[in-house]
């Protein structure tokens, strides 16, 4: 009688959704954590909303203060251990000299292009393999094998094949994104509820309609999960690819700064990289996750219940 609750003796049973379909979907994994502090409070939402970022900002400020204070105590040369004031000066200098804007635009362009291509190919390949048993059996071992070979190992080969520059970086990033998307699409396709497939077939859905209206929506939370993982991998891949195969970009700035004993510039590159990831996560990945994975999929977070 799962899913049916009698409201009163003798009354007609009231159908309810099974637990697995409520707040987060089938077989949901509840990320453990205390209930949000704003629960049950009225009128403090505005303040509570700012409390978290304010605390985060305070933590960052304390970190930089401790860093600045520690430099004279450690007594190392700025080359080994530059203070944050030097890093700030290097940041301003990189902007004044027009280096940082060019590197940043180059890196963002490469990242966006690589992630887009890898995602598109991953989804198409995942659907094609997931929907075809022969292709699945033929290609699964090869995919497993290739998944284990990280992009770092491929880049020297890519450089031999396509030389230094844009093409190699683009291929490396697409490769990095491709596999997590492919894997997750495959899982999504394989776990598409059979009952929906049967229902759609019995209603006369064509193969194309079956894919577009049942399989793809069912696989979407997995695809988004794969995208999130792939986007993170691609960010790391970007740094390495730019170190090896580029003469511009934030990865190159990190490498070039260290090679020229301009450690403050290297740290600027690292900080910009971190901030860029936070911005991408805040602006694109989190909202995307909210409308797919947390809504229909396998993960609910404490934040999503607020």
């Amino acid at each position: 009688m799962a899913g049916i609750v009698s409201s009163a003796p003798g009354a007609a049973p009231t159908p309810t959704l099974p637990q697995s379909l409520r707040s987060g979907g089938g077989g949901s994994i509840e990320l453990a954590g205390p209930p949000p502090p704003s629960w049950g409070r009225v009128g403090v939402g505005g303040r509570a909303r700012w409390k978290k970022p304010a605390k985060g900002a305070l933590g960052i400020a304390l970190f930089f203060a401790a860093w600045q204070v520690s430099v004279p105590l450690v007594g190392l040369e700025p080359y080994f251990y530059p203070p944050p004031s030097d890093v700030w000066r290097a940041f301003l200098e990189l902007i004044t000299k027009g280096i940082l804007p060019v590197y940043l635009i180059d890196s963002i362009g490469r990242y966006a292009a690589g992630v887009s291509i890898g995602t598109a190919l991953g989804i198409v390949a995942g659907l094609a393999i997931g929907l075809n048993r022969i292709a699945d059996r033929l290609l699964s071992p090869t995919i497993n094998f290739l998944f284990a070979i990280v992009e770092v190992a491929w880049i020297p080969i890519f450089v031999i094949w396509w030389g230094y520059g844009y093409k190699t970086i683009l291929i490396a990033l697409s490769y990095v994104v491709f596999f997590p998307i492919l894997y997750n699409t495959l899982v999504g396709v394989r776990t598409a509820p059979q009952v929906y497939l049967n229902a759609a077939r019995s209603l006369g859905a064509s193969q194309w309609q079956l894919i577009m209206e049942v399989v793809l929506p069912a696989a979407l939370p997995n695809i988004i999960t794969g995208f999130r993982v792939g986007a993170g991998f691609a960010f790391r891949g970007l740094i390495f690819a730019e170190i090896v195969a580029a003469k511009t970009g934030i990865g190159y700035l990190i490498f070039e700064g260290a090679a020229n004993h301009q450690t403050a510039r290297t740290i600027v590159g690292m900080i910009v990289m971190g901030l860029l990831w936070l911005a991408i996560d805040y602006a694109y990945l989190k909202p995307l996750e909210r409308v797919t994975v947390e809504r229909w999929g396998s993960v609910t977070t404490a934040e999503s219940r607020e």
Partner: peptide, 19 residues
């Protein structure tokens, strides 16, 4: 899904202004 659109618009406008 309004945030990604707004951010994209802001980035494009900033880039256009810069150019």
């Amino acid at each position: 899904m309004i945030r990604p659109l707004l951010v994209t618009l802001l980035v494009l406008l900033s880039y256009g202004g810069y150019e």
